[in-house]
């Protein structure tokens, strides 16, 4: 699903953020990307969804070379990738339904089909019946559930989560992780960037550790369980 081959990204402020990075993630995997702040996790995710371009190397997402993607093609790539951030990034001026509808409208889906789909998605993330709520009325965990529903709107093959549980209490965080696990069980590939080791230990999945722009360890779930 994701393949990095000798990828280097340098913003020209000292050391490269990512250097000669190579790894791949199979379809249907749930993997964690860990590392301290500044290790390059966010840059790595931004390279995947086309917000940055590598200085060298190639990046393939679902077989498509995104490192050489034209700017005009980036929106179409993003419709096939669900992205979830620490701060949920909901549109404050739209209701819960409006936020999810917007993702569908971007892909040209509207009307009754879209509304029915919103209902299904909210049910899937445990927010059924909250269509008319405004983001400001929701707790952090609820906002993150809506963000997940929005990310799933166009049935992406890949979900990228950037510190998606960073702002949540441990209990809520666990609920969100279980939700990610259920989404992964349904076949969606997930790459979850975090600096919270508790999250990683709990899930016992593959872990890529990023230090100063390099993957210093890549432990499969079995081994991660043993380390746990």
């Amino acid at each position: 699903m994701i393949r990095f081959d000798h990828v280097t990204k340098d913003f020209g402020h000292g050391e490269p953020v990512l250097r000669d990075l190579s790894f791949h993630i199979e379809p249907g995997e749930l993997s964690f990307l860990i590392g301290r702040s500044g290790a390059g996790k966010t840059t790595l995710l931004r390279l995947i969804y086309g917000a940055e371009r590598p200085d060298s190397g190639t990046i393939r997402v679902a077989g498509r070379d995104v490192s050489r993607l034209r700017k005009g093609s980036v929106p179409y790539l993003r419709r096939n990738i669900g992205i979830i951030f620490q701060d949920s990034k909901l549109l404050e001026s739209r209701t819960v339904e409006g936020n999810i509808l917007f993702a569908l409208q971007v892909a040209g889906i509207g009307g009754r089909i879209a509304r029915r789909r919103v209902g299904e998605l909210l049910e899937r993330v445990g927010m059924a019946g909250r269509e008319e709520s405004w983001p400001a009325e929701l707790s952090g965990g609820e906002q993150q559930r809506v963000a997940i529903a929005r990310a799933l709107a166009n049935e992406p093959a890949l979900i990228l989560a950037d510190e998606a549980t960073g702002n949540l209490d441990p209990d809520v965080s666990e609920e969100i992780l279980n939700l990610f696990d259920a989404i992964n069980q349904a076949g969606t590939t997930i790459l979850f960037a975090t600096h919270d080791m508790d999250v990683v230990r709990e899930m016992r999945k593959r872990v890529l550790t990023l230090v100063a722009g390099e993957v210093v360890s890549d432990r499969p779930p079995e081994l991660e369980a043993a380390y746990g």
Partner: peptide, 16 residues
Amino acid sequence: REEIDIMRLIGATNRF
């Protein structure tokens, strides 16, 4: 601008 950023992350084209 934040709204525009979010729209772009969701995959909205500039024209949209």
